[in-house]
């Protein structure tokens, strides 16, 4: 069997449709991850020990179990509890929820990495707590956080093919269906692989730029 360029051209529109879904799912999921991660981080900073520990274990649980099973859970179980979600919606929520446990860790580390001396300087200058956060701690934490967040965006993009398991017609799913029709899997899946490598490598170059920009004070 040799590579068939005509066939490749025929399936390309389907694949590009799939790519659109993949990008959409990644972007929406990422927004959820950014916000939800912040919620976890703030909850972990509440004075209540019970809330603190509960959140810690929930985050730990989500982070150390497979995204695929979580997707199944959201897609198949929630409807039986009266919450029916479309496949794409379930996928976006799954991606966002799973990766919020990573962004949460990034935020936490970003804040923890601001040297203690910075806090002490704020106290010495008698800055109100709010000011200290707003003007001193957060601006420094953000610099540390941006590159890692970028890396998780790439990681999430690469995990988006899992959505095919809950019948979202994203890129890999589109390729698989195209292949299944003709029993020629070589072209569609190879094209998908190449697309993934290109997008990931290009975006990791962007992230490394960010890293260099933000690493220098």
């Amino acid at each position: 069997m040799t590579w068939d360029w005509n066939y490749t051209g025929e399936i390309l529109p389907d694949l590009l449709d799939g790519l659109r879904v993949t990008v959409l799912a990644t972007v929406l999921g990422y927004l959820i991850a950014l916000v939800l991660g912040l919620v976890w981080t703030l909850l972990r900073r509440t004075p209540s020990r019970a809330v603190n520990q509960a959140v810690r274990w929930v985050v730990e649980f989500i982070r150390s179990t497979p995204l695929l099973v979580q997707l199944f859970f959201i897609f198949y179980v929630l409807p039986s509890w009266g919450l029916t979600l479309g496949a794409l919606t379930a996928g976006v929520i799954g991606l966002g929820l799973h990766y919020s446990t990573y962004t949460c860790e990034v935020y936490r580390a970003g804040i923890a990495d601001v040297p203690r001396g910075q806090w002490e300087a704020c106290v010495a200058l008698n800055l109100p707590r709010r000011r200290a956060w707003q003007d001193v701690i957060l601006p420094q934490a953000v610099r540390r956080v941006v590159p890692s967040l970028g890396n998780y965006l790439i990681a999430m993009f690469k995990d988006s093919p899992l959505l095919l398991a809950i019948s979202v017609s994203e890129l890999l799913g589109a390729a698989y269906r195209a292949g299944a029709e003709t029993l020629r899997y070589l072209e569609p899946i190879t094209v998908v692989g190449v697309l993934f490598v290109i997008v990931s490598v290009l975006s990791s170059i962007v992230v490394r730029r960010l890293e260099r920009r933000y690493a220098t004070y």
Partner: peptide
Amino acid sequence: EFFRGTATLVLMYWLFYALPLV
């Protein structure tokens, strides 16, 4: 760069579905 850029599932599908054809 190559293997970090590859999605595991895509690679798995490629090895499993595409490569046997060649």
